[in-house]
Design a protein around this nucleic acid. Structure first.
Lengths: 332, 332
DNA sequence: CGATGTGGCTGAACCGGTTTAGCTGCTGCG
DNA sequence: CGCAGCAGCTAAACCGGTTCAGCCACATCG
């Protein structure tokens, strides 16, 4: 190490000085720091990783069909939030987009066996999630985004989907709706199930008709098809809650096309707000969550895990329903 | 290395065997491979990186305001395409989302000084791009996505925006439009300028009126505002070309709101297709490009650079205009 | 004044691979 | 038969850091 030579000390001393460890005098430390600055020295990541048995990287695998990905701002906002916390600690984010569950698991195995990452983030938790048991078996530290429950001994961060859903149903019921329906996302995702339970429970609590639910893959196509089905049925709903913004937009388009005015004949609520919701005509009543902040929270939890902490489970803020013009009282 | 012990050879022999290098007999090689399989052995990435002076990772920095990011499927499709090529070579992708240009440059410096990446992808090329000179100075291998031109000695992969734009203008002129306008993206991006030049040139070649152009930040808000401005002017255009799908959607919403029927009174073309374009009412005529394939092409080019090749500049396929229902003959 | 710490530093081992010089035993050739 | 040449392997250096045992000089204390 040529800093050592230039400063006339051993490389052990340099290491202590640069890492703020005791073992060198203040005079020597500042001399070494000075030399390091002069030489614009930066530690070689591989060397540090090898010796410390750390990689200073965390991994995120996205396993959704490419088609539905990227349509939603959710992921980028999450990633931005994550990095707001991680980059301060010089921790990198490895991103991998894969086609399916199998491939996702293969990536975890490889990353961990090669020690490419120190931990991973698990997203889109399923009801029976083989990934959780895999990660536990591997001993690969992980933070589950989504919960509570079904995440084994892994720590988890989540938002209270149930309370959010209750908010929505209350809002609609308060406007006078009695026949509400829901266009849901993928049925095997845990949060879809959570929302479904809460949806049914809230409807029952308010004495509404047994609500209809249609499951989709989050794509606009399926959202449109579901809407068409609901509106074409004998007793069409007077309000529909969509599990994402893209489907809500598609739903409004279908309704308009069928001559069903929004909100006069049909109220629409979108789960997850986006610029799109505000641009549409009418602007959509939507459930807003601060995904950036959520990502930052998740990152802090993950760092706690990496620091050897237990990684306590944590609940994020409850999402807020923003009232816009796509919801109103049902037709008489 | 305990494979060596188990197989009764030296670790040097193990290394040769596992990497397919000459120097071991076939018998020994297969015995070593067998032991490695039994032990489910995988090389430690840090050790390999340290010794080979490679990191087996490439970096991608996205420096757009978080608000406009993620709205476009473009990035995820690009990333998916990149990884389709990269993961076969066990090369990871480091993703960093930053706020601005300064931060982006800082990330490059850090990544390279710590040898975290072997190369980076440069995206959203600007007319005067300080990043190009920085990367050249640093000696950090890079592939520029966007061009041709303005990328110094760095290799580049691009799509022919000019020909695509000509296609669009030809289509509109063929329908009979004479007053067309364009809602463009960020003015300092190179491809924005490319499109602008081509737009003006094609309009002139077809003898159309001098076209109006409004620049935006790609957000739906600004797209809506631009549309409002254009339609409210004394001589409103009969066709508008938008630089992305989100703005096109916003534009249609504004037109509808103002009582300007699409396509009867206003034709709309979106640059970049997405499910959204097909869902809208009317479905939008849009410029489709195979972003996944583009990403794969870029990855191959980048691999060529890493393999020590010159990294030849390459042009991707010309995007194709898909005719849907948002374009028709102008009102008489 | 000698025993005992102790702050400050050095030298070497170590992380887990790759690479290379060099050794061994065999084959083939004159 | 003697020697060159080569296949096949080992041992050790190396990548660039971190960590730790141990050494030295000096202060402190009984």
């Amino acid at each position: 190490m040529d800093i050592a030579r230039r400063a006339g000390v051993s490389k052990g001393a340099v290491s202590m000085a640069l890492n703020g460890l005791p073992g060198v005098s203040e005079a020597t430390r500042s001399r070494i720091l000075e030399v390091a600055r002069e030489l614009d020295w930066h530690p070689n990541n591989a060397a540090r990783a090898l010796s410390a048995a750390r990689s200073d990287a965390i991994g995120l695998v996205l396993a959704r069909p490419a088609r539905t990905l990227g349509v939603e701002p959710f992921f980028f906002q999450l990633i931005s939030g994550l990095q707001a916390e991680l980059s301060g600690r010089r921790i990198a984010l490895l991103l991998q987009v894969v086609a399916d569950h199998e491939a996702e698991i293969a990536v975890y195995r490889q990353w961990w066996s090669e020690r490419r990452v120190d931990a991973v983030l698990l997203i889109d938790l399923r009801v029976e999630d083989t990934r959780v048991t895999l990660l536990e078996e591997l001993g690969l530290p992980a933070l589950v985004i989504g919960g509570p429950g079904h995440h084994g001994r892994l720590p988890s961060v989540w938002a209270d989907d149930a309370r959010a859903m209750t908010q929505i149903v209350d809002h609609l019921a308060g406007l006078g709706h009695r026949r509400i329906a829901r266009v849901a996302g993928l049925p095997d995702l845990l949060h879809t199930e959570r929302r479904t339970e809460a949806f049914r429970a809230a409807a029952a609590a308010r004495g509404l008709d047994e609500p209809r639910i249609v499951w989709t893959d989050y794509s606009g196509e399926q959202g449109a098809a579901a809407t068409r089905g609901l509106l074409g049925s004998p007793q069409p709903p007077t309000a529909i809650v969509y599990d994402n913004d893209v489907m809500a937009v598609a739903g409004v388009a279908v309704a308009t096309e069928l001559g069903v005015p929004v909100p006069a004949a049909l109220s629409v609520v979108a789960w997850d707000d986006s610029p799109l919701c505000q641009l549409l005509h009418p602007p959509l009543t939507a459930l807003t969550r601060d995904t950036f902040a959520f990502g930052a929270t998740a990152a802090r939890s993950l760092l706690a895990v990496l620091d050897g902490g237990e990684g306590a489970d944590m609940e994020d803020h409850v999402p807020v329903l923003v009232h816009r013009e796509s919801t109103s009282a049902p037709p008489p």
